[in-house]
Design a binder for these strands. Sequence first.
RNA 1: GGAGGCUUCGCCUAGUCUGGUCUAUGGCGCCGCACUGCUAAUGCGGUUUGGGGUAACCCCCCAUCCCGGGUUCAAAUCCCGGAGCCUCCGCCA
Length: 445
Amino acid sequence: MIDLRLLREDPDRVRASQRARGEDVALVDALLSADERRRSSSVRFDALRSEQKALGKLIPKAAGEEKTELLKKAGELSAAVKAADAEQDQAAEETQRLLAQLGNLVHPEVPVGGEDDFTVRETVGEPRDFTAEGFTPKDHLELGQLLGAIDTERGAKVSGSRFYYLTGIGALLELALVNAAVAQATEAGFVPMLTPALVKPRAMEGTGFLGQAAENVYHLEKDDYYLVGTSEVPLAAYHMDEIIDADRLPLRYAGFSPCFRREAGTYGKDTRGIFRVHQFDKVEMFSYVAPEDAEAEHMRLLEWEKQWLTGLELPFRVIDVATGDLGASASRKYDCEAWIPTQGKYRELTSASNCDEFQARRLSVRMRGEWPGAAASASTPSSGGGGRTGGHVRPLATLNGTLCAVPRTIVALLENHQRADGSVRVPEVLRPHLGGRELLEPGAK
RNA sequence: GGAGGCUUCGCCUAGUCUGGUCUAUGGCGCCGCACUGCUAAUGCGGUUUGGGGUAACCCCCCAUCCCGGGUUCAAAUCCCGGAGCCUCCGCCA
């Protein structure tokens, strides 16, 4: 969620952000009035409570008639305090409820609009010219079946549409991808993590997935567990309710977990193959940084994604996702889209989001350290004594970026590296993880 | 699944039986100052978090003893419910 203080000081900025996202602007005014109600009732409560406390000190010392009198007065006061307390609670609850509905502030440079209003930041590599090579590319499913790597028919038989089996070389390919991705992340300083795939409501709520995105989340009603759609959720909630010393930042985790998505409202879309599925595995990068370092970290995540895709020798482009497609928690999002030959389009393979303090506030993850302005320059007579390591407690920023979402990466690999005979060239980086194999061949074991 | 124990302001801890003097004790750590001819020792002071008042500061006020209810004029303390952790038993990969 966003900073209430910022909302009070600059409501127009919040309104502009809501408008850009295509969300309800009236929410901002409702929030302001709820906050004002909360504030005034809080002042009233404090005054009454203060009076009650003072009276409470007199009672044990008093006796006889005086005591009876005091007790009578205390009784009346008590009722007033309870009423004021209830009012305060109600207003605070309302404020929180409304605040939780507000999306993150969008970065001013993000293109305004819907799904198709992105801007292209750069294009890396060239799509292959299959015409020049003299053959028509097969799609990933056909290739997967030839290679004995993908079985969607049995996936559907056992679990329904949008489920699949990775078989034989397909299974090995996933393991190779995961190992290569984790190796790259570890090399870059990420701590590898295997995370829970079932989380409690607070984790899901805190990461911002129970807003508009809620319809895409699986929920186990009986136990009130949610199935995560990404390990971003358990990684963000990992430090929930913690205060992290500034000198430990940045904290970088590479999570590997299954991901579950209902894919509601995607009926006609991507029904063939494994491009869009209900369950898949993913290696995800996650960073906790000081807010002033968030934009730089965002670029770093993007660079690591580019390094990954470049290593896989896939042609791709990077887009700056438009406001309407950001999701609740991101202020800015860069997607890497790989070229899919049989679709003749670039399609999303990875996505890097800067959530600023949005998730950290909701999950109460904070850092202890100097404010960015008040660096080590001035002698900082640090108010009233100092505290532990000196420095203030404030929310930090969280960012996440896909390293390897397995099925989509397999789609891109098979299609881009196929040869006329249906075999598929293995890019160099994966070879060590596939027993040195340079080629995936139909009929081979 | 069964039985028991535990949860206090960074960490450890006193307080809970017997409600008000708890503005929560002490130790460690940390911050500041003083002193000492040198990063040690000692002394003094400070050190939960959130919210509000304030242009802001000093400061003041309110809440906060795992969470939520209740009893009471008054709850860390009494009652009910819940969560988490630990131990033992059962079951299980």
